[in-house]
């Protein structure tokens, strides 16, 4: 079951999206729990009180607390990088601030069922990837972490430092063996680093800034390969 949020000050837009979502759920035979807010404040209160959402349709031009502010609140105050943000707006022009909240999609009103279906398909595909796990051994204990929670792997001598959204682990291994068992969301950028593309905040030619603020260097001989990889995966 997926928890979906809709936050828009237009009641009709909310009910139209809800109608589309119910139709989508029926067509795809999936269960959805839909929550609706007409103000940004209501949504903020829900999320502040540990409320969970998998996907959020968020209006950019909300009356008081805007979509941009809410996006920042979700990503930087709540540190929630897993929620799939789909912005909705009456305009097709967007501020740079919006792009910093790593939205999945932008939908322009009037929204069609086809557009919503496409966005939902993509969001659900990403969420499903969360179920892929990475297994490692620490001493005699076996650990499992969701691949989507992994930010990066850093090789430190014979050990590998595994940085996830929940914390840092260490295990013995080699980067070139680890990459073989990971999904194609992962990419080697240096002989000591593997990154999860889904957790990149900003790409530059020489460096990659991860969501946790770490800035990792792309090794000189891999820069072209990384760049072409990004272009092809688009």
């Amino acid at each position: 079951m997926y928890e979906i949020g809709i936050c828009d000050d237009g009641e009709n837009t909310c009910s139209l999206l809800e109608k589309y979502l119910l139709k989508y759920a029926k067509e795809k035979s999936i269960q959805l729990e839909i929550k609706i807010w007409y103000t940004g404040e209501g949504l903020r209160d829900y999320l502040s009180n540990s409320g969970h959402l998998d996907i959020l349709f968020l209006d950019i031009e909300l009356y008081k607390l805007s979509g941009i502010e809410l996006g920042h609140f979700i990503r930087y105050k709540l540190d929630n990088m897993g929620m799939q943000l789909i912005y909705i707006s009456g305009k097709s022009s967007y501020a740079m601030q919006l792009f910093k909240t790593q939205p999945l999609e932008f939908l322009v009103k009037p929204i069609t069922f086809e557009q919503m279906t496409e966005s939902m398909n993509l969001a659900i595909k990403i969420i499903r990837k969360k179920q892929e796990r990475f297994e490692f051994q620490q001493g005699k204990d076996h650990y499992y972490v969701s691949q989507s929670d992994i930010i990066c792997f850093e090789s430190q001598g014979r050990k590998i430092r595994l940085v996830t959204t929940d914390g840092i682990y260490e295990f013995y291994g080699r980067i070139k063996d680890v990459i073989k068992i990971l999904s194609d969301d992962f990419m080697i950028i240096h002989q000591s680093y593997i990154i999860n593309k889904a957790h990149v905040r900003h790409y530059a030619y020489e460096t990659v800034e991860m969501e946790n603020g770490d800035v990792l260097t792309i090794s000189q001989n891999l820069r072209k390969q990384v760049r072409d990889g990004i272009l092809r995966s688009r």
Binding site: Y203, A204, Y205, R227, L231, R232
Partner: peptide
């Protein structure tokens, strides 16, 4: 911009695909 450009050809379609790194604002 240290970017990359790729030109591909399918049965009836030509695609020019490129990416540019934009400095952080």
């Amino acid at each position: 911009h240290n970017g990359s450009m790729e030109i591909t050809k399918e049965s009836y379609l030509y695609s020019v695909k490129l990416m540019l790194y934009m400095p952080k604002s």
